[in-house]
Design a protein around this nucleic acid. Structure first.
Length: 718
DNA sequence: GAGCACTGC
């Protein structure tokens, strides 16, 4: 195993700069990194260190043996570490757990890793999925005595809450303690930590929240940022903030005139798990496909006719395509020759109710072949066994924010090379597989290497408010891993200014500080604060909670009309927001009865989330001195005026030509057909979201009066 | 008369 030793601590800043480049440019190259590989590879590397990079940049389809078990180093490590021995004695029944841990590729790096962290403040660990880096690293450090309640505990941040929870359960089991004691987790609505917690798995959003009250993260001696390669907006910001905390702790003294403990940072990033895979043959399209859906149908049925058993996974950009293809395949399936396997289709996308999602894990019954139609949820988040064939359209939906017109859109675009390779890998998890790419090799070569990071294409209002709350005044000159465009930044600053979260110097106001406390987009936070004066906090909290889910309704494809009839019962002439409020009232009268939900096409899972959010917001408001029992009753004009305090920019006036134009940017806009006010002609409307699909559509529309705008629009007229 | 990639506080 080749490890490039790092220089000492004083070079940290440079190291981090370098690491940023590593993360940004190439996961497989660069000097300052530690790579966790399987053993077969390790031995190879020892003999042929020069060949290492060549190997890593190979096509994932290359045939590489799965690592064999057995570890010559384990004896030495075991005898070297007394604390580990003690721990293992406590749980003789779980001795095979220790054996399991020893089999993990990262085990042999145990001593090196501890040593590296003693000598350096920042290290980067790169490893394949399943190398054990997320579960073992914290345990190694605790066992080596680097993490104690006195020195500070360790935080391991994760982009997804399920990952935080399941990692914590796994590790607490391995560590032989009850979940919530030595090992715990902290995610929204659920905290399983205690005063004795040493290893704390938490979502990146949670760690960002902690920064607000503890900017130097003094609770922690070490912070691990896991899955840093995913480049979510939150990990990007965390990376910079944690680094800043590290520098401050190194260069300043605390109130007692003492030096702070150094903050250790570990960045973890996954490489494609090619080394653990069976070979996958790639079949490219011989020519570009004009209709990916048609190509997907033809290819899938061709595989079914020609290839031996094994399930087929088809990657499509969205729900609509998935539902169309499902129908086409099932139609086709009825005309198959009787001697052929039957086909069964499984759908997989995030909006699908959980019970239906779990159906994909059922094995195909004898005599059938399972065809899974999925979005990129199956690329990383969910792994399905039994897949031997992957059909990749090479497309995905990407959310983009157009700062100039303040509009979001979801557009279908080509995936990155990395995504395509990840999709391909799904065919080779249990046996050799085949991947059919519905694009040419030339098209593949022209794809971007990685998906553009979120921070370069999304609405930045809440991120900028957070930075301002963290006393970062110069957000344009901030140390971003990838800097967003000036247009995006300026749009966010402007938005925060007109919400009065920032003053005309760009400094955060008292109001802005309060807004940053809420786990909400700034506009929604503004609404809650305004509700105090207007005495409608109860309704404001409820509406904001209702808007925190995608949809409180569900409409299965085959029952669309019934669903829209059911919706009519809740309809209010004030529009969608009050309609949502009516749904919540009825839901509570019915005590969340599942039969009632089903009959009224109410999404029960999402309603439960609404109730959770409401509870959290009530607690937060109470803590901030906003009375939460004030109510406007049925005088809905009041709560709509209150909503306008956050959304006055989102207003449109009916023109003599019978279409709507936005008040502040004079764009032509339309009421979305899903709105209860669709086809209604109203003097003025307010919406919470503007989306560009076939037309610019306003979503969540309410009826307002244009003279309300003069009362609520603040900084704009000043 | 339209549509909903995926996460998170």
């Amino acid at each position: 195993m080749k490890i490039n030793r790092k220089r000492k601590n004083e070079k940290d800043v440079e190291e981090l700069e370098q690491s940023k480049k590593n993360l940004k440019i190439d996961h497989n190259k660069g000097i300052h990194k530690k790579k966790v590989t399987d053993k077969s590879k390790t031995n190879n590397d020892k003999q042929n260190p020069q060949k290492k990079n060549d190997k890593d940049s190979k096509q994932p389809s290359k045939n590489i043996d799965i690592p064999k078990t057995g570890n010559s180093k384990s004896h030495q490590i075991k005898s070297n570490n007394e604390s580990f021995k003690k721990n293992s004695k406590k749980n003789t029944a779980d001795s095979n757990l220790i054996e399991f841990r020893k089999e993990l590729p990262i085990w042999q790096e145990r001593n090196n890793l501890v040593q590296e962290l003693k000598e350096n403040d920042t290290i980067i660990i790169m490893g394949e999925m399943g190398s054990g880096k997320s579960t073992q690293t914290p345990q190694f450090l605790v066992e080596a005595g680097l993490i104690t309640l006195k020195k500070g505990i360790i935080a391991i941040s994760q982009p997804r809450r399920v990952a935080a929870i399941s990692l914590a359960s796994r590790v607490s089991h391995e560590f032989g303690t009850k979940l919530g004691q030595k090992v715990g987790y902290s995610v929204r609505f659920d905290d399983k930590t205690s005063h004795s917690t040493l290893m704390k798995y938490l979502t990146d959003g949670m760690l960002l929240r902690e920064l607000l009250s503890d900017p130097l993260l003094l609770k922690y001696s070490t912070v691990i940022l896991d899955e840093a390669h995913e480049r979510t907006m939150r990990t990007d910001i965390l990376f910079a903030m944690v680094k800043k905390a590290q520098e401050t702790r190194k260069n300043s003294i605390n109130q007692k005139g003492k030096k702070y403990e150094h903050l250790k940072i570990i960045i973890m990033s996954a490489t494609l798990d090619a080394a653990k895979q069976f070979p996958v043959t790639i079949n490219y399209s011989s020519e570009p496909q004009s209709d990916y859906l048609d190509a997907a149908l033809t290819t899938t049925m061709q595989i079914h006719m020609d290839q031996p058993k094994g399930d087929i996974l088809v990657f499509l950009p969205g729900q609509e395509d998935i539902e169309i293809l499902e129908k086409l395949i099932n139609d086709y399936g009825t005309s198959l020759p009787p001697d052929k396997l039957k086909v069964i289709t499984c759908l997989l996308f995030a909006a699908l109710p959980t019970e239906q999602q779990t159906k994909v894990f059922n094995l195909a019954p004898p005599g059938t072949r399972k065809i899974i139609l999925a979005t990129n949820i199956a690329e990383t988040s969910i792994t399905i066994r039994g897949v031997r064939y992957v059909v990749d359209t090479g497309k995905c939906k990407i959310r983009k924010f157009n700062a100039k017109i303040g509009m979001e859109s979801l557009s279908i675009e080509n995936v990155s090379k990395n995504s395509a390779d990840q999709r391909l890998g799904r065919a080779g998890r249990e046996a050799p597989g085949i991947c059919y790419r519905l694009f040419t090799e030339d098209e593949y070569n022209k794809m971007e290497k990685d998906t553009e990071p979120e921070i370069k294409r999304c609405n930045l209002s809440s991120v900028i408010l957070l930075l301002k709350a963290l006393e970062i005044d110069d957000v344009l000159g901030f140390d971003y891993m990838d800097a967003p465009s000036r247009t995006l930044l300026k749009k966010a600053l402007e938005h925060l200014y007109i919400l009065k979260a920032l003053n005309n110097q760009g400094k955060i106001t008292e109001l802005g500080k309060k807004m940053a406390e809420f786990p909400l987009e700034p506009s929604y936070a503004r609404v809650l604060i305004a509700s105090q004066e207007l005495s409608c906090t109860r309704e404001a909290i409820e509406i904001v909670s209702l808007l925190s889910v995608d949809s409180i309704f569900f409409s299965p494809q085959d029952q669309r009309e019934h669903a829209s009839d059911a919706k009519k019962k809740f309809m209010s002439p004030f529009g969608d927001l009050i309609t949502f409020l009516n749904v919540l009232r009825s839901y509570e009268t019915q005590k969340g009865n599942s039969e009632w939900c089903y009959q009224n096409f109410i999404n029960r899972r999402n309603m439960k989330h609404v109730i959770d959010v409401r509870k959290q917001l009530i607690q937060l408001c109470t803590r901030m001195g906003i009375p939460t029992n004030s109510s406007c009753g049925n005088e809905y004009e009041i709560v709509l005026k209150c909503m306008l305090c956050g959304f006055f920019r989102n207003s449109a006036i009916l023109q003599p030509t019978n279409n709507y134009r936005t008040v502040f940017s004079n764009q032509s806009v339309n009421i979305h057909p899903s709105s209860t006010l669709f086809n209604k002609k109203l003097e003025a409307v307010m919406y919470t979201e503007l989306v560009l699909t076939s037309k610019p559509y306003m979503k969540h529309v309410s009826a307002i009066q244009s003279n309300w705008l003069y009362d609520t629009a603040p900084n704009i007229q000043e």
